[in-house]
Design a protein around this nucleic acid. Structure first.
Length: 349
DNA sequence: AAGGCGGGGTG
DNA sequence: CACCCAGCCTT
């Protein structure tokens, strides 16, 4: 109880004023938690406001087309969150009268809702005494207790969940959970924690043993892969070809131009010999021009995409295509959006 | 148990 | 440059 009291004491004086903290509506809490998965509040906040404005209720979200939801989500990343969000909204609206499950057990069955998110909703909305463990909680607990078990190992996940349970204030789990996360985000920060003014600086094991910089321990993951993208912008009378990505890779459900991916950087002569290029150009006349002399490097967490945009001016498109005036209505990766903002004439924006 | 999935921000 | 972020899903 001692730890929870200190966290709450700190929290009540330092907490940020955030829109979802004014609400106990499971729809709003759920929406905020999905948006904030692996996402900092500063980045997620404008998206939360956009979504609440566009979809005030779970029925509004459920009735929207997936493409519209993806377009609103554009730029936030991890797009499976948006697809799961939409699917869960349809489930709650159509199969459950718009009522969310009212405990952890029911919540965790929803698509896109795991242990963390179910615990957050259950404690914030219903006061269920379940402990949240997110990146902030790992950091705070590992430092206060000096736990060196890797946070992304199976034993680590169990150990930290148990620790979080032990210190949980079961009288007010909502405030406790908010407090420990906010404390981790704003005070017990990864790089520059403010130990001098910390409410735990009399007992923090990491501080005492000078291990602040080493904790929490995390197992390193594989390094980034390089990929070489060549996008073909087939332009005929201000209409171009867009294709929808599908499958298990990046950007599933988003739109892009016809893509030639190669193992190595590629020159124009080689590009023209590729199967995809021949298929898309289909024997007709065209002129080709490289839009960007140096490849655009787009960095994801685990891939670096070296990208060239080739402008192909041709007589007709292989199919109807999309007018330049409506391209920006499609959900696209930031890489494509950035290109379009350079390529499109101003009157199309 | 391990790998994949975005984009923005920090030191 | 490395590391982090109110994690989850699939294999």
């Amino acid at each position: 109880m001692e730890i929870s009291n200190r966290l709450t004491y700190w929290y009540l004086r330092n907490k940020r004023d955030l829109p979802w903290r004014k609400s106990q509506d499971p729809y709003q809490i759920w929406l905020s938690e999905i948006i904030l998965q692996q996402t900092q509040i500063k980045q997620g906040l404008p998206y939360f406001n956009k979504f609440i404005e566009a979809y005030p209720s779970v029925f509004d979200l459920a009735n929207a087309p997936l493409e519209e939801v993806l377009k609103l989500w554009q730029g936030l990343g991890y797009y499976s969150r948006a697809r799961n969000l939409h699917e869960t909204a349809k489930f709650v609206a159509n199969e459950s009268d718009g009522v969310f499950p009212e405990d952890y057990k029911g919540l965790v069955k929803l698509k896109g809702v795991g242990d963390y998110t179910a615990s957050a909703i259950a404690s914030f909305c219903y006061g269920e005494p379940v402990a949240v463990v997110d990146g902030n909680v790992y950091r705070v607990l590992s430092r206060i207790f000096g736990v060196e078990t890797p946070i992304n190992s199976t034993p680590g996940i169990k150990e930290f969940k148990n620790l979080a349970r032990e210190i949980l204030n079961k009288e007010d789990p909502a405030t406790h959970n908010q407090a420990i996360m906010e404390f981790g985000a704003m005070h017990c920060k990864p790089k520059t924690p403010e130990c001098d003014s910390c409410v735990f600086n009399d007992k923090c094991v990491a501080l005492k043993e000078n291990k602040i910089k080493e904790l929490p321990v995390k197992i390193k993951k594989a390094k980034v892969k390089k990929r070489y993208f060549n996008y073909l912008i087939l332009n005929s009378e201000d209409r171009i070809i867009l294709e929808r990505r599908s499958g298990k890779g990046i950007w599933n459900g988003l739109f892009q131009f016809p893509l030639v991916e190669t193992e190595e950087p590629i020159k124009e002569e080689h590009l023209m010999k590729t199967e995809k290029f021949q298929k898309i150009i289909d024997g007709q006349k065209y002129t080709v021009e490289l839009f960007n002399d140096k490849p655009v490097v787009h960095k994801l967490s685990h891939q670096h995409l070296y990208t060239k945009f080739w402008i192909l001016d041709c007589k007709e498109l292989p199919h109807e295509g999309v007018g330049l005036d409506e391209v920006l209505n499609y959900p696209v990766p930031v890489l494509i959006e950035n290109f379009l903002n350079e390529y499109l004439p101003d009157d199309y924006k």
